[in-house]
């Protein structure tokens, strides 16, 4: 469903991504892990073209995201890819409900009454039906991130991308966000998650990708990856995690 083919990206002279070849299959949950600055976030942001690439291609449902696309085609493609940010990025001038309703109405032309009904259902699904009228500034970090997930789901995307969704949260709020992600995975959503939550990777992921210095060094099932990592860099990463 999401396929990286020989992807290269540079920030000036710095190689951010080097020859990335990998694929997320339909219905699969992939966790991307690796040390800070290894290019995980950059990689996930190339999928909906929040980051440009210099060569190679990123295919989503067989279409090249970085190919010759008109503005409208790219916008349409983006509606099919849910994206959850580390810093939530809720719209602070809108209530939780309006955050979720805005894009279905303005981008997809859904009627207000239908958008509202769907939004309330999604807020209920992430456990925040009672907070529908609250503004983001009145919600905790964990609640904001759950609203952000509901907002992304409102476009009914076939795939969801998570860019370190719990990294900006206080530890006691991480669980509530992960449990929403777990339930999504259970429902068969195709997911690509950049995260440092190794327990989540172990329990939920179908595949784990390990990245370092802009390369995907290893891909494997969680069992193989955590029990017997092949690449020396992955071995060191995991042993650092365990000794912490």
């Amino acid at each position: 469903m999401i396929r990286f083919v020989a992807v290269h990206k540079f920030f000036g002279a710095l190689a951010a991504l080097t020859d990335v070849n990998a694929e997320v299959k339909k219905g699969e949950v992939v966790v991307v892990c690796g040390p800070s600055g290894s290019g995980k976030s950059t990689l996930i942001r190339t999928v909906n073209r929040l980051e440009e690439i210099q060569s190679g291609s990123v295919l989503f449902e067989g279409r090249d995201v970085h190919g010759k696309l008109g503005g409208a085609a790219l916008n349409h493609l983006r509606t099919r890819i849910g994206f959850v940010f580390q810093s939530f990025n809720l719209f602070p001038h809108l209530s939780a409900l309006d955050n979720v309703m805005l894009s279905p109405m303005k981008v997809n032309g859904v009627k207000r009454s239908e958008a509202r009904e769907a939004a309330l259902r999604l807020l209920d699904r992430v456990g925040l039906a009672a907070k529908a009228q609250n503004y983001p500034g009145q919600l905790s970090g964990g609640q904001q991130q759950r609203v952000a997930i509901a907002r992304a789901l409102a476009m009914e995307p076939p795939a969801m991308l998570f860019d370190e969704p719990t990294s900006a949260l206080d530890p006691e709020m991480v669980g509530e966000v992960l449990s929403v992600m777990r339930s999504l995975a259970r429902d068969g959503m195709t997911m690509m998650c950049v995260t440092h939550e190794m327990n989540f990777a172990r329990d939920v992921a179908d595949r784990v990708w390990f990245m370092d210095a802009g390369r995907v060094l290893e891909t494997g099932t969680p069992v193989d990856f955590f029990r017997s990592p092949q690449h020396p860099r992955a071995q060191r990463f995991l042993s650092d995690l365990h000794t912490r």
Binding site: N48, L50, G71, A72, N75, H76, R78, T79, I81, F83, F85, S87, N89, L90, F91, L102, S103, K106, V107, N108, A148, R151, A152, M155
Partner: peptide, 18 residues
């Protein structure tokens, strides 16, 4: 404004003007 606001809107499929 934080750039994340534009990122979030674009990621949801809004055009630049939208």
């Amino acid at each position: 404004l934080p750039t994340g606001q534009m990122d979030a809107a674009r990621a949801l499929g809004h055009s630049r003007l939208g």
